[in-house]
Design a protein around this nucleic acid. Structure first.
Lengths: 218, 218
DNA sequence: TTAAATTATAAGGCATACCTTATTATTTCC
DNA sequence: GGAAATAATAAGGTATGCCTTATAATTTAA
């Protein structure tokens, strides 16, 4: 009952807290500080710290505290980015107060996938800071890809991947010259198809196929 | 580790599915249909159905299926409303595709509290249907209250409740004449305070106190 | 330097929401 | 009416992330 591969919500919460509670990247955050932050029993904190350590997200120095590994820090930064973008949305667009925005963003940050949060960032005009003034970390995936069915008319990009939905689809993609790496620009969008320019000729791609072709902007 | 009083996510999912899978309000939804929908083992479905029945959300007729109680239907409608509003936001504002929007909304509908979803509804212009054309049920709480710190300048309302944050706060609220039921209108908003008119005189309320005073429009 | 305070760890429990394997009850269809 | 199919239920298990109690290890401060 858990998305495999997805980083569990609670893991993200811990990593985000460790990032925020640390003073410098090198100085360990003591478990007492984490205990204070999460208001859990020392044993529960210790158990979770063991897991995070075993899984390579943190470095645990008994009696001293924990530091984030490179992987753990990446997770924390991605989380903070999502958190602060949702805070901005809540305060700027929905007029939610600062205080409430923080907690609500704490739930939304786990519910919305990164691709949606990146679209939110664009919609908000790529804000640089959250409503409290804290910086919004840059996206770790600045070239996040979009399904061809989402690329706006006029935009150009490079094919990144083809969702391998069927052999027929893959053959068609090959015929169209839309293999990963090729450049496309969207010329027109119809109800059930999208017309793209690829290698100087126009191809009309059915919606279903467009859903499976992923493109990043360049 | 679970918000008390909050209806658990999974309970909402089941009730929403029962609502959507039924043909008429009276005809029971068989557990086989639910099993198909959730792709779980028959035993798991049965276990959950027992719980929902015990807790009064559904009526269980062995060998026949389940129907929603009045309470269960209210939960389902509230969920559907949130789901479809988020779908609209995702497709209309963030240009997420229909197909993706459904699943993402399935997560957001649980993460955002009702108050936020109602603000989202206003922001979206109170849409009547989701992107697939299905109707968005009306809010069961049309007079949902807002913290005084969110009531716009010029608006008037009636105090619904005071979050009992401290005895001092409650005494102050009493002195200001802002007990539940009293009418207020917002006259001016400063950086750390809001000025309201109550019983024909003006009171300046610090931001902290304003956060704890809830008002519904009338 | 040693006693007090803090930190770590072991052991056993709880709730949720899943699972499988049986067994029993009911309905449906020939 | 009776066998086959379907549905219900009992029993025991899994993982997560909490909990308490108790003991051991280390650090800190007098």
């Amino acid at each position: 009952m858990e998305k495999v591969g997805a980083i569990r919500e609670r893991v993200e919460d811990y990593l985000g807290a460790i990032y925020r509670l640390r003073t410098t990247a090198a100085s360990p955050v003591s478990l007492a500080v984490l205990r204070e932050h999460f208001d859990l029993s020392p044993v529960s904190i210790h158990e979770m710290i063991q897991k995070l350590s075993q899984r390579g997200w943190i470095e645990y120095y008994p009696y001293r505290g924990v530091t984030l590994t490179v992987q753990g820090e990446a997770v924390a930064l991605a989380l903070l980015r999502r958190h602060r973008l949702w805070e901005r949305f809540l305060t700027d667009v929905l007029q939610v107060s600062w205080a409430e925005a923080h907690d609500i963003a704490g739930a939304l940050e786990h519910a919305a996938p990164e691709s949606v949060t990146e679209r939110l960032a664009s919609f908000l005009g790529d804000p640089a800071s959250c409503p409290h003034g804290e910086p919004i970390p840059p996206s770790a995936n600045p070239y996040i890809d979009h399904s061809l069915s989402h690329v706006p008319v006029g935009a150009a990009g490079r094919v990144t991947r083809i969702a391998p939905e069927s052999a027929a689809l893959l053959r068609a993609v090959q015929d169209w010259g839309l293999l990963p790496g090729s450049r496309v620009s969207v010329v027109e969008r119809q109800a059930a198809a999208v017309t793209v320019r690829v290698a100087d000729h126009l191809v009309s791609i059915p919606q279903e196929a467009a859903n499976a072709i992923w493109v990043e902007a360049f």
